[in-house]
Design a protein around this nucleic acid. Structure first.
Lengths: 157, 157
DNA sequence: GAAGATTGCGCAATGG
DNA sequence: TCCATTGCGCAATCTT
């Protein structure tokens, strides 16, 4: 069923990395609020390790620190691309599903039509048989083509 | 159409680690305490960074550190579930796509069959018309049912 | 070769 | 409580 998870959608933030990023205008196309919250409430007791962390983004707006400014901009763009791509993907899946429904419907229609045609054929054949002698009198052989085979059972799907 | 509402105020930082495997990650402050409550995290420390360090096996095996041991176990389980779920999802999408192909093929078959039946019907009708007089001689009116209408054009797809 | 599109992966919230 | 789903961000790739 449709599920509308109302999850929190923090536009940015979540940062897989440590989150928190310096203010960046960045109008994320989605038009989401650019609110950003704080994170990491509980400071780790033992001692926060910082392994891969570049260690100190003190001056983030540095010319082009790998982890600031341009980086952030690229991340944001990629995030948008990802959202877009996923939306598209989802849309496609939905379309495919719908296509299945449509095809199933059409199939039913076609089968119904086949049934009808078969029936008509059957009736006509009966009529033919019923008056076969008439043709015979005229020198016409009843049936010669595969057109007529049985009565109600035609089809070999 | 799942819509996302902006409600949650993500307090914690997501540890979107990179694809690297984390042997013994030590989520120092992962604020995993509260759960299911989405309220603004009162504490808004000025120090925004807090880089969560990936490893650093100091002594994470603390008896039950909120962010170690049980936490890690749960995360791992969830990750497995996620992988499984995604695999399943992907599989389903693939199946659906395949279903479309199958249905399309069947549709073609059905249409071909309809074409054939229509042709047969047409032929029979022609025969009927050709010998209509024979029936007339027998006192049979040519056609009375909707069964026969035109010649080559029957039905409205 | 940089920008955008995909894809795999992990996290967290939520549904069941 | 556990597992399943789902939205999201990051990073590696692939495509353009």
């Amino acid at each position: 069923m449709s599920k509308r998870s109302v999850i929190c959608t923090t536009p940015r933030e979540h940062g897989g990395r440590n989150g928190v990023r310096r203010g960046q205008p960045e109008p994320s196309g989605s038009g989401v609020s650019v609110q950003r919250v704080q994170e990491i409430p509980p400071p780790s007791p033992a001692g926060p390790r910082t392994v891969m962390a570049p260690s100190k983004p003190s001056k983030k707006s540095a010319g082009h620190g790998k982890e600031s400014e341009e980086y952030r901009q690229r991340r944001e763009r990629n995030n948008m691309a990802v959202r877009k791509s996923r939306l598209k993907s989802k849309q496609k899946a939905q379309d495919t599903q719908q296509r299945v429904e449509e095809l199933k419907e059409e199939n039913e229609r076609l089968e119904a039509k086949i049934k009808l045609l078969s029936k008509e054929l059957s009736v006509l054949k009966d009529l033919f048989l019923e008056h076969a002698h008439s043709f015979s009198d005229n020198g016409h052989p009843p049936f010669t083509e595969n057109t007529a085979s049985g009565q109600g059972s035609n089809m070999e799907q």
